[in-house]
Design a protein around this nucleic acid. Structure first.
Lengths: 191, 191
DNA sequence: TTCATCATGTAATGAGTTACATGATTTG
DNA sequence: CAAATCATGTAACTCATTACATGATGAA
């Protein structure tokens, strides 16, 4: 039940509405860590209220409700953060990389090429994000935690890009090896 | 519906029983890309048979059924591999890293320290795996695709480790900054 | 003969997505 | 006043996990 803990984590920062939380998933979490849509978030917040992990701390226009984390919620979050239960990862993106061998060499190269391009784009994007964070940051202020996540994203995209480049090199090597062998055999036969 | 494609990808390599497939998830896929348990796999294989994506190519002892991928299955797999539908990633592990700011500085350091240790252990393990693959590989044979996945794993664990080390350095910097500021203020007041 | 592993399944429950549905407020 | 955005919710469906359940085969 990670949605619950993701919500607690976001609310630990500051009280927010379901709508706010939904946005924050879209903006950062859903790309690298966890996704949730509003239709899942709203009911969960209700359940969490019933369980005493969060509470409505204010109501605003358009029937909006601002939720805040409770003491119990904070305790529950901390407990979860330190409880290592090796949970399954899901990433279709990586799954594809693990299934590459199902493709023929041409398709494989095309797909890995796409990974290089994706990685490149990601690196460019995150570099900008980081630059923005750093110019906005004022010295002496509380450490910008968004910087940590952004750095993670940057390194992740670099990994993608560099691994894919390496993979193409490997395929080249193997193919070159084969060509060389074939020529060697041919020469031997001829000579 | 990625389980379906994961199964197709594994069967593209060679025909296997549900049991075999279950093992392969446990061994490599579930750690980096996708998890599935047997109770999910067996019914899915049945559905896939009904849909003509796989077929029973042999029956063995203990009522075991060996499944093979069909032509339609191969086509479906290829189609899926090239169809980029940005799918949501789920990783509790990374989620925790994104929610770090919910912890106090002490807890934060402890948790990041754990990440360093995990990364270190992963690097050691994958290095061994790679060594084994490379000594087993015989030149001229078909390229060892497991090597690509293992390299990905290695780089992933390195990323974890190095990011975590960097993060601790950042926290140190911020804290040092604060101490310096505090001393400066104190000195100013005194002088 | 006992234990580990092979081998497959179902049922109940929980988690998550997509589609449906509504309406207020702000900005241009 | 129109469009975008804010804001919340429910219902039907699919996907996935946990628990339950059984039995064969091979190795020690």
């Amino acid at each position: 039940m990670s949605l619950r803990h993701a919500l607690l984590g976001l609310l630990a920062d500051r009280p927010q509405t379901g709508y706010d939380l939904s946005k924050r998933f879209e903006q950062s979490l859903s790309r690298y860590a966890w996704h949730a849509s509003h239709s899942h978030i709203y009911p969960e917040l209700k359940k969490m209220t019933a369980d005493g992990l969060v509470e409505v701390v204010g109501e605003g226009a358009r029937g909006s409700k601002t939720y805040g984390i409770t003491e119990r919620g904070t305790a529950e979050l901390r407990e979860w953060m330190f409880t290592r239960k090796d949970t399954p990862v899901r990433s279709e993106y990586i799954l594809r990389l693990f299934l590459l061998s199902a493709l023929d060499t041409g398709d494989m190269r095309t797909l890995i090429g796409d990974v290089v391009a994706d990685g490149e784009a990601g690196v460019a994007e995150l570099s900008q994000v980081i630059e923005r964070i750093e110019t906005d940051a004022r010295p002496g202020e509380k450490p910008p935690f968004a910087r940590l996540a952004a750095e993670f994203g940057l390194r992740w995209h670099r990994l993608q890009r560099d691994w894919a480049r390496w993979a193409i090199d490997e395929l080249d090597k193997v193919e070159h090896q084969r060509t060389t062998d074939k020529n060697a055999r041919r020469t031997r036969r001829r000579g």
